[in-house]
Amino acid sequence: MPIHDLNELLQHAQPKLQPGAFVFVSLPDWPDLPLKDVLMSFQEDEGMTFILRQSVADQLGLQYEYVAAWITMEVNSALDAVGFTAAFATALGRHNISCNVVAAFHHDHLFVAKKDAALAMDVLQNL
């Protein structure tokens, strides 16, 4: 059951660092790429944004600028919960850690610079 209450969300956030390195790429349209290799896609006016494993992007020769770690907030957060994103983004910001957030159906997924992964996990575990 999705959780709406901010205090409960913070108490049960359970951040989990996913293995690997991930990148954001922008392409004019869908590449010759199996759907299983795409973590996220989003249509923007400028083209398609994809989040991929760095190894997949490298294999395809795709350009990227940012290598990220992927942290899943394991709590089942409601899509209309208020304040959860602000709480963890503010906590990370206090430690000068940028955070790119993808809200999926069950969980929030955070992409932070790979170099900041350990510190981000410490910050998130102490929400």
Rank of each mutant, 00 (worst) to 15 (best):
Leu39Ala: 06
Met1Thr: 07
Ile97Arg: 07
Val112His: 03
Ala68Ile: 00
Gly83Glu: 12
Gly61Trp: 11
Gln18Ile: 11
Asn76His: 12
Thr85His: 05
Asp108Thr: 06
Val75Cys: 15
Val102Arg: 05
Ser98Gln: 06
Lys115Trp: 07
Glu44His: 13
Trp70Cys: 15
Ala57Asn: 00
Glu74Asp: 11
Asn100Cys: 01
Ala13Cys: 10
Phe111Lys: 00
Asn100Thr: 00
Gln54Ile: 13
Leu27Val: 08
Thr90Arg: 14
Ala87Ser: 15
Asp32Pro: 04
His12Lys: 12
Val23Leu: 03
Gln11Gly: 08
Lys36Phe: 05
Ala87Trp: 04
Val112Arg: 00
Phe50Tyr: 05
Glu74Ser: 05
Asn100Phe: 01
Gly47Trp: 04
Phe22Met: 06
Gly47Leu: 03
Asp29Leu: 05
Met1Asn: 08
Glu8Pro: 02
Phe105Ile: 06
Ile51Arg: 03
Val23Glu: 12
Gln59Leu: 09
His106Arg: 02
Asp37Gln: 13
Pro34Cys: 11
Pro2Asn: 04
Ala89Asp: 03
Leu9Ala: 14
Val25Trp: 01
Leu33Thr: 00
Leu9Val: 13
Thr90Met: 11
Asp45Glu: 10
Arg53Tyr: 06
Thr72Phe: 01
Ile71Leu: 06
Pro19His: 08
Leu110Asp: 08
Met1Ser: 10
Leu35Ser: 03
Val101Trp: 07
Leu79Ala: 09
His109Trp: 02
Val101Ser: 12
Leu27Tyr: 01
Leu27Phe: 01
Gln63Cys: 10
Lys114Tyr: 04
Pro19Gly: 10
Gln59His: 13
Gln59Glu: 15
Met73Lys: 09
Met48Arg: 13
Asp32Ile: 06
Leu52Ala: 14
Gln59Ile: 04
Ile71Cys: 02
Phe88Gly: 04
His95Asp: 11
Tyr66Asp: 13
Ser98Lys: 01
Val112Ile: 01
Asn100Met: 01
Phe105Val: 10
Val38Ser: 05
Phe111Thr: 13
Phe22Val: 14
Asp29Glu: 14
Val23Phe: 06
Gly20Glu: 07
Ala13Trp: 08
Leu35Phe: 01
Gly61Thr: 14
Gln18Arg: 00
His109Gln: 12
Ser55Tyr: 06
Ser77Arg: 05
Asp58Tyr: 10
Glu8Trp: 00
Phe22Arg: 07
Trp70Pro: 15
Phe84Ser: 14
Asp58Glu: 14
Ala69Ile: 11
Asp108Ile: 03
Thr49Tyr: 00
Leu33Arg: 03
Ala104Lys: 02
Glu65Asp: 15
Val56Leu: 04
Leu60Asp: 02
Val101Thr: 14
Val82Pro: 11
Gln63Leu: 12
Ala91Cys: 03
Ala87Val: 03
Gln54Met: 12
Ala104Ser: 13
Thr90Phe: 09
Val102His: 05
Val23Lys: 02
Ser41Ala: 08
Ser77Met: 07
Ile51His: 00
Leu9Ile: 15
Ala78Glu: 08
Gln43Ile: 05
Tyr64Gln: 08
Ile3Val: 11
Ala81Glu: 08
Val38Cys: 01
